[in-house]
Design a binder for these strands. Sequence first.
DNA 1: CGCGAAATGTAGCCTGGGCTACAACTTTGG
DNA 2: CCAAAGTTGTAGCCCAGGCTACATTTCGCG
Lengths: 144, 144
Amino acid sequence: MTETDPTQIKGFDRARQAASRALAEDYVEMISDLAREFGEARITDIAARLGVAHPTANKAVARLKREGLAVSRPYRGVFLTEEGEALAEQVRARHRVVVALLRAVGVPDEVAELDAEGIEHHVSQRTLRAFEAYLARSETGKQG
Amino acid sequence: MTETDPTQIKGFDRARQAASRALAEDYVEMISDLAREFGEARITDIAARLGVAHPTANKAVARLKREGLAVSRPYRGVFLTEEGEALAEQVRARHRVVVALLRAVGVPDEVAELDAEGIEHHVSQRTLRAFEAYLARSETGKQG
DNA sequence: CGCGAAATGTAGCCTGGGCTACAACTTTGG
DNA sequence: CCAAAGTTGTAGCCCAGGCTACATTTCGCG
């Protein structure tokens, strides 16, 4: 028992990495939302919506800036880079698909929204594509 | 913008809490698996399978003991309490349902296994029940 | 304009989960 | 039966994400 099944390990590792990426995704999506609503995303608003204290949001934004997803000048609003905006759009799209899939298989709307928030970060590209294909099928086929 | 939509906050909080619970669930399931295979779960084996160093597994087991999910005497194997075993069974069952659901909507088998590992921890009771109902339906209905 | 309120930034601490290094205990085989 | 090997436990560190407290800057308004 020194090697152990690599599949296991890989699976858990994936989960841990996803947890890390999830944070950035949440922030990027939130910043994009706020930009749409108010024209810019303020630290206070980001923090409030995410339910964290403002220094926490500040740290997170600093990380996004380091990663090239956002930009901001001191005491000014936060804006996404093109890369950040692309990620936000991707996250938003995935969220919609996951919610739609959940609803399509019979999950109540409010529950679908809540669960999707956690689930979406673990949905791989291939699974996402499978979801989309399924939704396309059930749109036309109408078996539910 | 001081109150903000509580739905948002609740959603994110749920995700964060789930991330914390996920660890315990992984360990409990693994301990249960090892108990079935070898009669007991040794720290070294738990660590190896989860892909972490043994002190990490040790800490996690200490936490499970604190939470009443496991018991162990120094330098001896780890065993689940009834509560821990129940949780393990529940986690295992949920994993099976999530994998089955993913496959049912067209996700390739290997991908389903990997993604389920991350997704399952965010599947609420109500969503799980919806999954089960859907699977029951598609078993008999056979629309795929 | 100038001052108080609000927003942002910074410092420093806590917790949890991960690691390495090392100590203590068990097992095993010569 | 006892030393070496293996296993478990402990100490102490790191990092990330969260918080509070406090400093600084900007904004709004009299």
